[in-house]
């Protein structure tokens, strides 16, 4: 473990807590893409199947349980509990255009042709594009609540910090995982325009209003 990965995991944890608090306090999922949250639930489910077969640490196991649990609670909030506030008209991204190519790529490009490893690879590739429905929804609605912007900033920062973690691990541990690094770069690049808007607008107290 290193500081970059620890801060990255905490940023990821914070993002999830911000999202749950926004939903619970405002009793509303307005502006949140249910499709992205479904993709995140798939990402965690397919990545953490080794939850019971390989033990890394208490921290690792507890974080995996937390991420899987909260991802399903979030999907439940959107499609059941706060369903009346779910804005399905603006959450129209065709996720099949993500899942099929990512599934095919995971089948072709992976570290080991085994079921668990192909699912792990699928999860890594899917996570890199899972935020697209949410970013698409923000661009369609033309704006995002500031709390949603904070959620997206924390979520985007987590994988950016993981990039630093991989640089650290390469030089100090000789660890290198090309699949995770390439997907992590794609994932972080997708947030760039949002990061720019967040830093130039939200931090000055303005709301984000993407060109609709």
């Amino acid at each position: 473990m290193n500081i970059f990965r620890l801060v990255g995991d905490m940023s990821h944890l914070l993002a999830i807590i911000i999202l749950l608090m926004k939903m619970w306090k405002s009793r509303s999922v307005a502006g949140i893409s249910g499709k992205s949250q479904i993709l995140f639930a798939i990402v965690f489910t397919t990545r953490y199947l080794d939850l019971f077969t390989s033990f890394v640490s208490i921290y690792n196991t507890s974080m995996k349980v937390f991420f899987i649990g909260t991802s399903y609670v979030t999907v439940y909030f959107i499609y059941q509990h706060f369903k009346p506030t779910y804005d399905s008209n603006h959450d129209t991204f065709r996720v099949e255009f993500l899942i099929v190519p990512v599934g095919g790529l995971a089948f072709l490009v992976n570290h080991e042709f085994s079921l668990l490893e192909i699912l792990w690879t699928f999860s890594i590739y899917l996570e890199s594009v899972a935020i697209l429905p949410q970013l698409f929804m923000v661009s369609k609605t033309g704006e995002a609540e500031s709390i949603t912007s904070h959620y997206l900033f924390a979520l985007g920062s987590y994988r950016a910090l993981y990039l630093l973690n991989w640089i650290y691990r390469y030089y100090f541990e000789g660890f290198f995982d090309l699949i995770a690094v390439v997907a992590g770069c794609v994932q972080t690049i997708l947030y760039c325009d949002f990061f720019y808007l967040y830093i130039t607008k939200v931090l000055k107290g303005k709301k984000i209003s993407l060109p609709a």
Binding site: D9, D50, S54, N60, K64, F67, F175, F176, D177
Partner: peptide, 10 residues
């Protein structure tokens, strides 16, 4: 790549 045959990152 897996350390000791497993992924040790979240």
């Amino acid at each position: 790549v897996m350390l000791g045959g497993k992924h040790d990152e979240l």
